[in-house]
């Protein structure tokens, strides 16, 4: 049960955090220059966005959940199962960022979920 809660946090909070950061990044726009000065101004600008802070907070929740589950589960079990974030990412990107998910991509995601199911069966 605890495992399920932690996996939920890793996958959902981690992915939601990435989506928030992605939203913040999109509102800043494409970066064309890579000089230290422009990168610094880019970082400072991104820190002014609430989406960025929400994203970092959610990603931290995901990271600490990962640490917690690693204290009692095998790495070769935890990391493959957290590939579920591909599915969470697709649903989130569709709902939250308005991205269109092609049929091929849904197929790939279904294969990932199948693989995660098989790895879950191998749990000890």
């Amino acid at each position: 049960m605890l495992e399920a809660v932690l996996f939920f946090l890793i996958v959902v909070a981690g992915t939601a955090g990435e989506l928030c950061v992605s939203r913040a990044m999109k509102s800043i726009g494409e970066v064309h220059e890579f000089s230290p000065k422009s990168i610094l101004s880019f970082v400072l600008r991104s820190l002014r966005l609430p989406w960025m802070w929400l994203g970092v907070a959610l990603m931290s929740v995901g990271f600490f959940s990962l640490l917690a589950i690693l204290s009692f589960q095998e790495v070769s079990f935890v990391v493959p199962v957290s590939a579920l974030s591909y599915a969470a990412g697709a649903f989130g990107a569709k709902a939250f960022l308005g991205e269109r998910i092609s049929r091929n991509r849904w197929m790939g995601i279904a294969v990932v979920c199948l693989g995660v199911t098989i790895v879950w069966w191998s749990k000890r």
């Binding site: 790939g108 294969v111 990932v112 199948l114 098989i118």
Partner: peptide, 29 residues
């Protein structure tokens, strides 16, 4: 860690799935 054949199968399937996801167009908006 002991990796059972079942886990190897699952990992291979995940790899293949991620590979498929990556082969689709990166920008759809």
């Amino acid at each position: 860690e002991v990796i059972s054949p079942l886990r190897w199968l699952g990992v291979t399937v995940i790899c293949f799935g991620v590979f498929l996801v990556g082969r689709t167009s990166p920008s759809t908006t």
